[in-house]
Simulated scan of single mutants.
Amino acid sequence: MTSMDDFRTAVTAWVAGGTGDTARDLAARLPVRTVVLLEGLSDVAAVEALAARRGRDLAAEGVCVLSMYGATNAARHARLLGPPGLGLRLTGLCDDAERAHYARGLAAAGADPDAFFVCVADLEDELIRALGVDRVEELVRAEGEGRALRTFLNQPAQRDRGPLPRMRRFLGTTAGRKIRYGRVLTDALDPARVPAPLDGLLASL
């Protein structure tokens, strides 16, 4: 049985230079109506975690949540998946610093250049501010990484940073950690304090 994971894999191969035949076939068979373009896998984890909390099965709704592995890939994804390619609706979530990549990429593909939601710094920053640094530290300890966090915070390079920048940096220091905490932090959110970009994205789908 085909799945949205198969479609994601096929799109990644297409973007890398493949023919796109498998992606086209899967898009018609599933079918897919919307693609959420995200910068990385930690963003995918957060979006999927919030959708699950709200009782939504995005794949069953025809929504593909897709990591582009970097905002600079927005133009190629938009060209292949948007009006010139599969004709799918495009939306997404990005960091403010990467806003131009999204806007230019979607506009060049004939898609709505404003059809995405912007985080002030990045999604990790939004989640940490929504939860508070103390709560995030509790979650890190609950995940068994209290010692790793203490070691990190005692490094000389971290002493001049504020609590929030230090925590953001910690989440990005080990491969896979941002993905893991994308889900952990989202699951811990108070329903009334979901970051506006993430909340807006889910509401738009």
Results as ranks from 00 to 15, higher is better:
residue 136 V to P: 13
residue 123 L to Y: 10
residue 128 I to C: 02
residue 91 T to N: 04
residue 135 R to S: 12
residue 84 P to T: 11
residue 156 P to L: 06
residue 160 D to A: 15
residue 70 G to M: 03
residue 54 R to F: 05
residue 83 P to S: 00
residue 73 N to E: 07
residue 67 S to L: 13
residue 87 G to M: 01
residue 119 C to R: 06
residue 138 E to A: 06
residue 102 Y to R: 02
residue 72 T to I: 07
residue 76 R to W: 08
residue 145 E to P: 02
residue 63 V to E: 00
residue 98 E to V: 06
residue 60 A to G: 15
residue 89 R to P: 05
residue 131 L to W: 02
residue 102 Y to P: 05
residue 144 G to R: 07
residue 145 E to V: 10
residue 137 E to I: 02
residue 53 R to K: 15
residue 80 L to D: 10
residue 68 M to S: 10
residue 91 T to P: 04
residue 153 L to E: 14
residue 156 P to T: 02
residue 150 R to V: 13
residue 118 V to C: 13
residue 81 L to Q: 02
residue 118 V to I: 13
residue 156 P to W: 00
residue 109 A to V: 09
residue 110 G to T: 04
residue 136 V to E: 12
residue 140 V to E: 01
residue 70 G to N: 09
residue 149 L to H: 13
residue 102 Y to Q: 07
residue 56 R to K: 10
residue 148 A to M: 13
residue 141 R to H: 15
residue 114 D to G: 14
residue 154 N to E: 15
residue 89 R to L: 03
residue 153 L to S: 11
residue 90 L to Q: 01
residue 109 A to F: 14
residue 93 L to P: 02
residue 130 A to D: 04
residue 159 R to M: 12
residue 62 G to D: 06
residue 95 D to C: 08
residue 71 A to C: 11
residue 154 N to R: 15
residue 108 A to F: 09
residue 99 R to G: 03
residue 138 E to I: 08
residue 59 A to V: 03
residue 88 L to K: 03
residue 148 A to I: 10
residue 125 D to A: 15
residue 127 L to P: 11
residue 100 A to V: 09
residue 57 D to M: 04
residue 54 R to Q: 14
